[in-house]
Simulated assay, not measured.
Amino acid sequence: MKRSTLILATLLLAAASPASAQKLVPVKVQLKWFPQAQFAGFFVAQAKGYYKAEGLDVQFLPTGDQSPIQTVATGTADFGTTWITDLLTARQQGIPVVHIAQLFQKSGYTLVSLKSAGLKTPADFKGKRVGVWPSGNEYPAVALLKKYGLTTSLDSSVSNPSVQAVTYPFDPSIVFPDKVDLVSAMTYNEVYQIVGLGYPLDKLQIFHASDYGINLLEDLMFTTERTLANRNFKGSGMSGEDVAAKLVRATLKGWNYAVKNQKEAVQTVLVNCGNTCKGSGTRSSAASHQTWQMTEVAKLYNAGPTLKGRAGYLDPATYKANVTLLKSLGILKADPAPAAVTYKVWEKATGKK
């Protein structure tokens, strides 16, 4: 009797274990753009089971008409990725979003022209047409132009701007090179799309904003004050801050793996990106486009604090420089509230101070 009871108990325990192991905390993450290697670390973390190892069931929400700020602020998503300018302007508008981890430590923003246009420095942009993106994505261009004393048609208070801004929806083939002299392009995406349009790199003049002191930080992780203050996140028994730390820890692990194993990471991305793998306007294959992108985003991740073993850390000096720059442009009216950034999540995630 005792032996049969023991066997029965063992069988019941074995049957129950998988179910209990599947009690993962559901977490929704809104990425800033369509699935691509820009988010390789997230996809690798999911594929490798890093999120599950932290007890999380992570779902990436598809990009829609709403920005990540709106999606997270309304509670449709728990966490999101965005750029520093988006986050700080949202705080200025009273939206209680909070920076929790900085993934890209260097700006990938560029302005691209044909070498035949003869532009050598940003000072040469006077009188030219510059293609910019809408919805706050024009700020790096505006900052670069202002540094060289140039005004744009985006400023309604200027009667005779020195640069004509042409807003376009992220596909350089729509405007370049016929309708603009320079076009906005991220190193990891639109630059390669321009190459795919039939303009090889040796025919292009690429102006990296970061080379001219315009290093407005891009891909970061954020959430809301409400989520961080939640003492029982979705009934998990864990605080929102603890869940955030688990999410950041697994994501950084995914990024570290992706950067060190780029070929494998690209294959993981290709499974997730579907029709967006090739990138709009490019003549290249999906694999070549994502391989280029993975190579370039690895450079943005492997910079600054990451090189000092502090991946995901927002360098206070860089943050201060970003705030100062945005204030000089009139984009920010005052310093952001201290609550706009928290280091508690990063410290919990990494065990570092």
Rank of each mutant, 00 (worst) to 15 (best):
A53T: 12
L87H: 04
A19F: 13
W33P: 07
A19I: 14
I84N: 06
I69K: 00
L87D: 04
E54S: 10
F39K: 08
K52H: 11
W33S: 13
Q70H: 08
A47S: 13
R91T: 06
I84K: 02
A37E: 00
K52W: 07
D86K: 02
T71E: 11
T89I: 09
D57S: 14
L88A: 05
A16L: 14
K32H: 13
A45M: 05
P26M: 04
L88G: 08
F60A: 08
Q46E: 15
D57K: 15
L88R: 03
Q30E: 10
A19C: 10
F79N: 01
T81F: 09
L31N: 09
A15C: 12
L87T: 02
K28Q: 08
F39C: 08
D86M: 09
H99S: 03
K28F: 07
L87K: 04
D57G: 03
Q36Y: 09
K32M: 14
K32A: 15
A101R: 00
A90S: 10
F79R: 02
I84S: 01
I69L: 06
T63R: 15
F79C: 01
L56I: 09
P62F: 04
V44Y: 01
Y51C: 05
T76L: 12
L103T: 11
G80A: 05
D86G: 12
L87A: 02
T76P: 06
Q66R: 15
V27W: 01
Q30F: 07
F43K: 02
A37W: 00
S20D: 09
P26V: 00
T85A: 11
G55A: 10
P62D: 10
L31S: 07
A37C: 05
F60G: 04
V27Y: 04
Q30M: 08
